[in-house]
Design a protein around this nucleic acid. Structure first.
Lengths: 188, 188
DNA sequence: CCAATCCTTTGACCTAAATCAAAAAGTGAA
DNA sequence: TTCACTTTTTGATTTAGGTCAAAGGATTGG
């Protein structure tokens, strides 16, 4: 799955791919395990093979706000912390028992130095992440609660029914009560 | 100014910088001139030397929604359109008489092929843009109108007083009436 | 299998900000 | 300088969605 992801970004040879994948480690992670905490510098990039990850932060009043969901087949990271090596603004956790592939910053740098194509791949990856964020920003701004939920359903159809309602609500910038009422009216 | 920007991303030599800058063209652009229209594939990356640019899109009801402001000293683009060569979702225009440096996609690719460092620089640039977007998303989501305006004042102190109120309001996801009232209460 | 905890739903009420409307202030071209 | 047009302000009213409170449901570990 991760091999396909790279192939889709750029045509790597089988040998290159094999070497690249050798720098990743497979990990089984239990539900609710936290991968990165706020204030820490993230040293790992994750690829979700199975399960769901999410990033969130705490508001001053202690409430969690989901910033992003990472479904199977996607890279997951506290992007600015990992790539810029700055303290993370977010927590990263998995919300289901998951299987991920991880690579350390050092190993990624090694690969980038070794393969020019790898640098290009990472560049394309960050652009892809960027355009997803932009898409969310547009979907959230100026839209009604109902339209924001529709965006969720099209962008994350599976996660919409597997993540707890409160986490989805905060991702969409609404209260869980509002989302609950929306869902009820959905089935009419 | 553009040279300083690159130097700040990565240490280029004077010769490299000179060659890189030779691939840019200086342009004077009149207020309200549109640089890219919705649906077109953007072929140029801009660096704002003087003036202000902004990106916006039209809602179904025809109202403009400002997506981003680009102050002097920043790169400006319809990022996903330029980097992924897809139809732009946005319009790009300048809201003051401006001076910009432009580079075509082809010339940028040339530079990237020629200088490994250039690819790294562009990678760092996209990460920087990404983290600014993430920052806005957090500032907008779950914040009151007043807090969103405070974000505007810290993120774009100069633009806050040079862009028309309606453009700022839509950037922040509120109506112009609300922003006008906020400003009034500001000066107390 | 049951208690304890967590998650979701429902109801009543309230408030921030939207909408609608119109006046006032600014800007620019002839 | 004036007229037409755009932008901003102000006021009155409405409403989507938030807050508060409590009751149902669903999980989980002992």
């Amino acid at each position: 799955m991760i091999a396909a992801y790279f192939q889709n970004l750029l045509p790597f040879t089988a040998t290159e791919l094999k070497d690249i994948l050798a720098h990743f480690e497979k990990e089984h992670i239990k539900k609710n395990q936290i991968l990165i905490r706020e204030g820490h510098v993230s040293n790992k990039l994750y690829f979700v093979e199975k399960g769901i990850g999410r990033s969130y932060y705490l508001k001053k009043d202690g409430k969690e706000v989901t910033q992003w969901f990472f479904g199977a087949g996607n890279f997951m990271a506290s992007a600015d912390s990992f790539f810029q090596q700055t303290p993370s603004f977010y927590y990263l956790e998995v919300i289901e028992d998951s299987i991920v592939y991880t690579i350390t910053k050092e190993n990624l740098e090694l690969l980038i130095t070794k393969y020019r194509k790898m640098e290009t791949a990472i560049r394309l990856l960050t652009i892809e992440i960027l355009s997803k964020f932009v898409h969310k920003l547009n979907a959230i701004q100026f839209q009604t609660a109902r339209e924001r939920y529709d965006y969720m359903l099209t962008e994350f159809p599976d996660i919409s029914y597997r993540a707890p309602l409160g986490q989805i609500a905060s991702y969409l910038g609404m209260t869980q009560e509002t989302l609950s009422r929306l869902r009820r009216s959905e089935l009419s």
